[in-house]
């Protein structure tokens, strides 16, 4: 059996909206290894959240999801019926979302919401589930868990609510935890607490964690492997060191040089990426970054580069024509933007 807990091949997700079709995800290949901490990074609208929601089938009616292969723990998700899928979510796959206020039900106590998946998936009795819920709240660092169980979400602060979400997600001991911008709504000091807790949980439960974020700082301090997305496609993927110290895609390089650093004493000028992301109602035919790329060649606009390893066997993949020798051979030199 492969080490992949999640395997995605050629995933495409479209949304039909009033003005046409938004091609949010346009053919991505991705895998998550057992027990690893993978980060998916990209700006708003790059398709990072839609990718995961497509896998979990949590998208609205107007979405069409197609893929060559979607497999979780060796099982083909494309063949799974709705009922079996529902049984898997919250049990084998745990989820944490950005806004803990809207992902917790304001009408039910915290206790109710932690016990629900335990009763449904693990067939626990009320008594057992309560015991486990207290244990989980204690584990995620919520003081006096017995009393807190009886409280409602509005009685918790943002950081505490996110702790509750983590307790719910981990309660059934999932094999994969998907966290979509879990700390974006939180202040830095609370963000630090939650990231620490997530790393701690990953060690304790040895669940694979897939962290979706726009924040490269969060990625650097938590993940071991990174996938960079842009315009509905994967631009680059590799070990966290490869991405931060040896970035190969102009987009990754651009992202890294447009952030300011709290540890930086010099007043270096930031080099922003000019322009703005592509419109996915009308996606570019070639590489989506072409219009903003300093090194764009004629071929970049004409055809989409494949994700290929920089060095065979390195696991460091880049989708860029600059890396492809054929781009130079057919006589299309670097042209001015």
């Amino acid at each position: 059996m492969s080490g992949h807990i999640l395997e995605i091949q050629n995933l495409r997700t479209d949304f039909s909206i009033a003005g046409g079709i938004v091609r949010a995800v346009r053919g991505i290949d991705l895998f998550v290894d057992r027990g690893e901490f993978l980060g998916v990074v990209g700006e708003s609208g790059c398709g990072k959240s839609v990718t995961m929601l497509s896998v979990m089938r949590l998208l609205s009616e107007n979405a069409t999801v197609r893929a060559d292969r979607l497999a979780f723990d060796g099982r083909d998700l494309l063949r799974l019926d709705h009922k079996k899928m529902r049984r898997m979510l919250g049990d084998e796959i745990g989820m944490i979302f950005q806004d803990p206020m809207t992902s917790l039900d304001p009408l039910y106590t915290i206790g109710n919401q932690i016990m629900e998946p335990l009763k449904i998936h693990r067939k626990m009795s009320g008594h057992e589930a309560r015991k486990r819920a207290v244990e989980m709240l204690d584990l995620v660092g919520i003081p006096s868990p017995e009393q807190r169980l009886k409280q409602y979400p509005h009685e918790f602060s943002g950081g505490m609510r996110q702790r509750v979400m983590i307790a719910i997600a981990m309660s059934c001991n999932p094999k994969l935890l998907i966290a979509d911008e879990p700390t974006t709504a939180l202040d830095v000091t609370i963000q630090a607490q939650i990231l620490e807790l997530m790393k701690d949980m990953q060690e304790k439960f040895s669940a694979a964690t897939l962290l979706i974020t726009h924040d490269l700082g969060v990625i650097a301090s938590t993940c071991s492997r990174v996938v960079v997305m842009y315009g509905g496609l994967i631009m680059e993927s590799g070990d966290v060191e490869d991405i931060f110290y040896r970035p190969a895609h102009p987009y990754t390089i651009g992202l890294l040089s447009s952030i300011s650093d709290a540890a930086d004493t010099g007043k270096k000028k930031l080099s922003p990426i000019p322009g703005s992301p592509p419109d996915l109602m009308n996606p570019p035919r070639g590489c989506p970054f072409t219009a903003r790329c300093d090194f764009a060649m004629r071929i970049c606009a004409a055809s989409r580069p494949a994700l290929a390893e920089t060095v065979p066997g390195s696991g460091h993949g880049v989708a860029c024509w600059l890396r492809d020798t054929r781009a130079k051979l057919d006589g299309t030199g670097v042209t001015a933007r």
């Binding site: 830095v188 630090a192 990231l195 700082g217 650097a220 966290v240 060191e241």
Partner: peptide, 15 residues
């Protein structure tokens, strides 16, 4: 503590 909580985009330094 505020400064030490800021995530830095450098894996080695972060570790």
């Amino acid at each position: 503590s505020l400064l030490s909580a800021v995530p830095i985009a450098d894996p080695a330094a972060a570790r």
